[in-house]
Amino acid sequence: MIIMYNKLAKLIIFISIIVHCECLKFSSLDTVYKKAVDAFSKERWSECILQFEGSLHLYKVYKTINVNCRLKCKSENHNTFTGNIDDLKIFEYFLTLKDCLSQCQKEEFESVHMYNNVSDAILYNMQSKKPYEYLHLCYFEMNALPKAASAAYTYLVANSDDIAMKRNVEYYIQQPEVDVKEVTDLESEDYQILYKLGIQAYKSNNWGNTIANMEETLTDYLTWENSCRAECEHQSEQEVSPEFIITVANNILPLLICRQKCQENLKPLYDSGAELLADVLNYLQISYYHSDRFDDAAKAVASYLTIFPSDEDMLENKRMYETLVQQKSFTERTDIVHYLKRDKYEKHLLNFFLKQDNSDLNANSI
């Protein structure tokens, strides 16, 4: 699913205005981040905050443009050649995709007066939420403890093994200035917020709000994972072989690994995207039932069973719904079916690659 372009345009315009009012001057994420680190090292706390917040805004623009261009170009039909001679069709696809991607990125980055070249080291720091490790200290030094608490918590969510940051969060929530209910993950995704709202509505037996929030959770999660997968197409280190086919294959492996890692964002609650989707579908079928929307409930049940076909409780639910609706109501959601097929095929390819790598290692050791 492609990011909505009107939402993207508003986001880019809003962020670019915040980050730089000097509209004719091009912004650089690398430069702003380095200025932030320099300000921190020299204990210029207010500048530290300004520059790190600026780097976070610039990174959102950078990520949004790249993801949007990748999804947009893939959604378009680039093949004009109607024949099927050797490998030419796939070559044409990638060449025209490259042209679309380069043009899209060039136009979008120029429109917001931002450089596209960002070092891999800075990208890694942004992805691992490093700015928040600095920001919580800068906020602390400026006596902005509520902001410091949320910055520390945001970093901890992405780096759960950091013992020192756990202690920092514990310290902050004990301070009288900090309301623990206001300590939030500043990088939380929309689907996470919607899911929590859905749970709250479910506990209050508010079936209408549960349905609205859980349906949006499904849509937003699938959109988020597509965006996360598109981010994986930036590869910092590419393995090169004199053999063209080997070079291509070697770079497919890290892409597949990265795409599968997107689902790790769901831990510790869920081990996979399929588990989250099944959980949401279960809430939906219950809420649809209580709203007397039995056809929608049957669709949610059929979609759930696509994920877990042997689930006895859901099979029992299906038998109950069969007394209320016609058999044709048990149709799986196409978005769920597509997600599962893609995930299964991707895991198959990944296992195939890993088995090949192990075979090569064993052969070389003989």
Rank of each mutant, 00 (worst) to 15 (best):
K344W: 15
A164M: 05
T334V: 12
N351D: 14
I12N: 05
S291M: 13
C228E: 01
D179L: 00
L50V: 12
S310E: 10
L197Q: 09
A151Q: 02
L156A: 07
E243T: 06
E237Y: 12
C21D: 13
E322V: 00
D220K: 09
V240M: 12
L266N: 10
S16D: 06
I49A: 03
H20L: 13
C73G: 04
S28R: 05
Q263L: 08
T154G: 06
S55D: 09
I246V: 15
Y5M: 13
C21R: 09
N77I: 07
L255D: 11
L354A: 09
D279R: 05
Y283C: 07
I90V: 05
L88C: 14
A363V: 01
S28H: 05
W45K: 02
L71F: 11
L350I: 14
I173D: 04
E108G: 06
L71C: 10
L349I: 10
L50S: 12
K34C: 01
A149R: 03
F91H: 08
G208P: 11
N226H: 11
A298G: 02
L137T: 07
A230I: 14
Q105S: 05
V61S: 02
L305P: 02
D343S: 06
L305M: 09
Y304V: 08
N159V: 02
D313M: 07
E312T: 12
V240F: 05
D313S: 07
I193H: 04
E332K: 12
L194I: 03
K355E: 13
P268R: 03
Y304I: 14
T31L: 04
D38L: 12
F26V: 10
Y321T: 01
L24S: 05
T210S: 12
N209Q: 09
V112A: 04
Q105C: 01
L24P: 00
S111C: 06
S55F: 08
A149M: 00
P131H: 11
K267A: 14
I3D: 07
S236L: 00
F308S: 02
S272D: 07
C104K: 10
H20W: 14
H348A: 10
V61M: 08
Y153I: 11
L281Q: 04
L277V: 09
L135I: 00
E107F: 07
N282G: 08
Q327N: 10
A230M: 11
E110P: 07
K129E: 03
Y304M: 15
F14N: 15
K89I: 14
N84C: 03
K60N: 06
C104V: 15
L24C: 09
A274Y: 00
Y62N: 02
P176G: 05
Y289I: 06
T64G: 02
R167M: 06
Q127R: 13
N282M: 00
Y288G: 03
P309E: 04
A363C: 06
Q260N: 11
L8K: 10
D313L: 11
V61E: 04
K34P: 02
N226T: 14
H57Y: 05
N125W: 03
K147M: 07
Q356A: 01
S365P: 00
L58A: 06
Y33R: 04
P146I: 01
Y289F: 13
K72G: 02
R229I: 06
H234N: 13
S75D: 04
T334S: 11
N143A: 12
S27A: 14
Y132G: 08
M114T: 14
K347Q: 15
G198T: 10
K89C: 00
N79H: 02
F330E: 08
C21K: 15
C73L: 12
V280W: 00
